[in-house]
């Protein structure tokens, strides 16, 4: 077996005083093969963005304390000296953020911003850099790429800015592309464009994508493998088809059932009772305990270990998965 491109092992992120730390990530484990696409899905406070920041080592220190291992291509990124990281960021791992406006420098032309990224990692003459930048813009479907090189971010719409961000991210052919809610700020029709573009880019460059989103639809569209997070913990992981067809953790099931769908004539939406816990609020047991319809006493004391559902699919729940194609469990709230 080949070594994974990215292996995250027992990743823990803590904030606050050492005596009473707030753990926003609790032993996150996953690995990612070269060329694959993984989606991390979760609601606010689930730790999904924190995971990506930890991988990029962008968690502010010393306020945040990171422990565990983040192996990229066999090297533990957490052991690297700080000054090594910028060389990895951008060249090996690139990131696309949610808010394209605030991630671009407003007083620098986009051509210069893309070229800057290229320059940091590759030396080439100025004219070549401009050509490369235009080439990248063409690649992300920007009309008239040569002509738009000297435009400034505010002259673009949200969708076009996200295209610029993608162009910048792929400038150095990164091996891993991390996209943190890349389409959340966009309208649906523009989101469809950007998702299509990301799929095309991935196919073309053969890079791996780690996409983070609260939107199960986006994840289903782009990811082959899914990680479901809740309150800083991974509660279910698996092949995308297996997760969406046969969700096993009560939270994943509830979440999938509560998503409004177009082709669905239910009069009422399924609902998960209660609200999403704040990061670090749960110290013991299963984080979903308070909202779960299948809870047992032992869930409160002990976090259930990952149980295998099938060869690619694991879920952290004591309740074993029902076989495929049985009707989904009715979780509390719908019984009335």
């Amino acid at each position: 077996m080949t070594t994974p491109l990215l292996r995250v092992e027992d990743l823990v992120v803590e904030f606050g005083p050492k005596s009473a730390p707030i753990r926003v990530l609790e032993k996150v484990n996953f690995e990612m093969m070269s060329g694959s696409s993984i989606g991390i899905v979760g609601e606010s406070g689930s730790g999904k963005s924190m995971t990506s920041l930890a991988i990029m080592r962008l968690i502010p220190e010393p306020a945040g304390r990171v422990s565990g291992r983040i192996e990229f291509d066999g090297r533990n990124l957490l052991d690297l000296p700080k000054k090594e990281m910028p060389r990895i960021r951008g060249r090996d791992i690139a990131m696309i953020f949610q808010e394209p406006m605030s991630s671009l420098n407003p007083v620098m032309s986009i051509g210069d911003q893309i070229a800057e990224g290229i320059m940091l990692h590759e030396s080439m003459p100025r004219e070549k850099r401009r050509e490369k930048a235009a080439e990248l813009l063409r690649l992300v479907g920007m009309p008239d790429p040569m002509g738009r090189l000297d435009s400034f971010p505010h002259q673009f719409s949200g969708g076009m800015r996200q295209r610029v961000m993608i162009a910048m991210a792929i400038a150095c052919n990164p091996r891993l592309l991390i996209a943190d809610e890349p389409t959340t700020a966009l309208d649906v029709t523009i989101q469809a464009q950007v998702l299509q573009l990301m799929k095309q880019v991935r196919k073309r460059l053969n890079s791996s994508i780690l996409i983070i989103s609260h939107d199960l639809g986006v994840i289903a569209d782009i990811a082959e493998h899914v990680i479901v997070m809740y309150a800083g913990r991974v509660i279910e992981t698996g092949d995308s088809r297996s997760i969406f067809r046969n969700p096993t953790h009560p939270y994943t099931r509830g979440l999938l059932d509560s998503v409004p769908r177009l082709k669905d004539d239910r009069k009422r939406l399924h609902q998960i009772p209660g609200s999403v816990p704040l990061a670090g609020m749960i110290r013991q047991g299963c984080p979903f305990y308070a909202r779960c319809g299948l809870r047992m006493d032992k869930c409160q004391q002990q976090m259930p270990p990952m149980q295998s559902v099938n060869s690619t699919h694991n879920a952290a729940c004591w309740v074993t998965a029902p076989p495929l194609d049985t009707p989904r469990l009715v979780v509390a709230g719908e019984m009335r």
Partner: peptide, 22 residues
């Protein structure tokens, strides 16, 4: 209608992707 991403990896529906921005 076609732009709403469905949480179903097999819903490989043919999407109408509008070009350009609003």
């Amino acid at each position: 209608l076609s732009a709403v991403p469905e949480p179903d990896p097999d819903a490989k529906k043919t999407q109408i992707i509008l070009e350009g921005d609003v």
